[in-house]
Design a protein around this nucleic acid. Structure first.
Lengths: 216, 216
DNA sequence: CTTGATTTTCATCAAACGTTGAAATAAGTT
DNA sequence: AACTTATTTCAACGTTTGATGAAAATCAAG
C-alpha cells in the first residue's frame, strides 16, 4: 500500500467518523462520505470495503488505543496500591480519564468519535455488535477490580453501579452543549475538567451507597 | 374522523414506534412501517403526514401522558413536605418512577418507546428537536425542586448531577438485556423494581456527595 | 524507459427511497 | 335513496441508495 493510498484511506475514515457521529449509521450515505472526503465513490469500497465494514473500522480504530490506555491505567493503580486492593476512585478514574481527557484535548476527531460511541451504546441495533465486541472484555476487568475494592459488595450491586456510571459517562459525550443551554450557561461541557472532577466523586458515592448498605 | 381511520392510524403509529425504536429514524423506511402495520404505503402519509411528522407524533404521543404524571408526582411530594422543602429521594423518585414502572408493567409499547427516547437522547441530530422541546420544560421544574432540597448546593453541581442521573436512567432503557449478559445473569434488567431500588439511592448519594462537599 | 501492480476515474446496475394524484371503495348524513 | 365526505387502493414520479466492472491514470521497481 503506497503512501497516497494511506492518506486517502484516512481521509475516508475521518469523513465517515464525522458523519456517522452526526447522523448515525443509516443517516449517512456512502456517497455523502465520499463527497466529504473529496474522493470518488468507488474509492470508499476499494479502501474500506462495504458500508458495514467501514463503520466497524471507524469504530475499532480508536477503541484499540483507548482501551489499551485504560487497561494500562487500571493496572498501574492496581500495582500502586498492592498488596492492598486499589482505591475505588482510582479505578473509576482509570475508566473515565482516558476518555474525558481525549474529549477535551484530543481534537475534533476524538470528540466526534465519542459521540459515535454514545450513539452506538444507546442503539439496540448497533450496541450488540460494537460495544460488546470491543468494550465488554475491558469492562469485565474493571468489574473485577471494583470487586476487590468493595469486597463486601454483592455482584448485582456492582454491575448495576457500573451500568449507571456507563450511562452518565456516555450521555456526557453524546450531548456536548445541551447541558450548557439547559443550565443557561452555568455548565460548560467543553470544560471537561469540570466534568471529570464531578463525575468521579458522583459515581464513587453512588457505588459506595449501593454496595455498603450502611443504613437502609 | 371515523372509527376505522382511528384504528388504522394507531396501527401505523404502533408499527412506527416499534421500528423506530429498533433501528432509529433513518434505519426504517415508510414502506417498512406500512408493511409492519399491514397497511398501504399511501395511508401512512394520509394519516400521519410525512416521515418527520410521523416520528414527532410517535415521540409526542407518550411524552405527554408521561410528563403529566411526573409533574403530578413532583407536586404531590412537594405538598406532602410543605412547608419544608421536598426530600431529594422523593424528587428523584418522581422523576424516574413513572418511567420505570411503565417500562416494567406498561407493556411492550412503552418499553419500545423508552428505547426510542434513549436513542433520541443520545443522538446529536435528534436530541435538539425531540428532547429539548418535549422534556426540557419538565426538567427545569425538577431542577428547581432539587435546588430547594439542597439549598447549599451550587447550580453547576446540580445541573451536572441531573445530567448524570439522566444518563444512567437513559442507558437503562436503551440496553434492556445487555447488562444481563455482561453480568452473566446476575442482573435482570427486566426486573425494573431491582433497577429502581438501586437507581434512586445511587443517584441521591451522587447528588449529595457533589452538592454537599463534606470533605474534599 | 519499460513493465507490472496499485490506485483512481467513470459509467452503470438493480433496488429501494419518500411522496403523491387519481381512481375506487366505504362510511356518514340528510 | 341520493349525496357528500372520509378512507383505501393502485400505480407511478423522480431520486437516491449501496455496490461494481472496465478503463484510465499513477506509482514502484528493474
Amino acid at each position: 500500500m503506497g503512501k497516497a493510498a494511506h492518506t486517502t484511506r484516512r481521509r475516508i475514515l475521518d469523513a465517515a467518523e464525522k458523519l456517522f457521529a452526526e447522523k448515525g449509521f443509516h443517516g449517512v450515505s456512502v456517497r455523502e462520505i465520499a463527497r466529504a472526503a473529496d474522493v470518488d465513490v468507488a474509492l470508499v469500497n476499494y479502501h474500506c470495503g462495504r458500508k458495514n465494514d467501514l463503520f466497524e473500522t471507524v469504530f475499532l480504530r480508536r477503541a484499540e488505543v483507548l482501551n489499551r490506555e485504560r487497561l494500562a491505567m487500571l493496572n498501574a493503580c492496581r500495582e500502586r496500591a498492592a498488596p492492598d486492593p486499589p482505591e475505588l476512585e482510582d479505578i473509576i478514574d482509570a475508566f473515565t480519564h482516558p476518555l474525558l481527557t481525549r474529549s477535551a484535548r484530543g481534537g475534533a476527531g476524538w470528540r466526534r468519535y465519542f459521540a459515535l460511541v454514545a450513539q452506538v451504546n444507546n442503539s439496540p441495533e448497533l450496541a450488540p455488535i460494537g460495544m460488546t465486541r470491543y468494550f465488554d472484555p475491558l469492562v469485565q476487568q474493571f468489574i473485577a477490580a471494583i470487586r476487590e475494592a468493595l469486597p463486601d459488595a454483592r455482584d448485582e450491586d456492582i454491575y448495576w453501579s457500573y451500568h449507571f456510571l456507563s450511562g452518565a459517562l456516555t450521555l456526557t459525550f453524546a450531548q456536548t452543549g445541551r447541558i450548557d443551554k439547559l443550565s443557561g450557561g452555568v455548565c460548560r461541557s467543553s470544560d471537561l475538567a469540570s466534568v471529570h472532577e464531578r463525575l468521579v466523586p458522583y459515581t464513587a458515592a453512588g457505588f459506595r451507597r449501593l454496595c455498603k448498605p450502611d443504613k437502609d
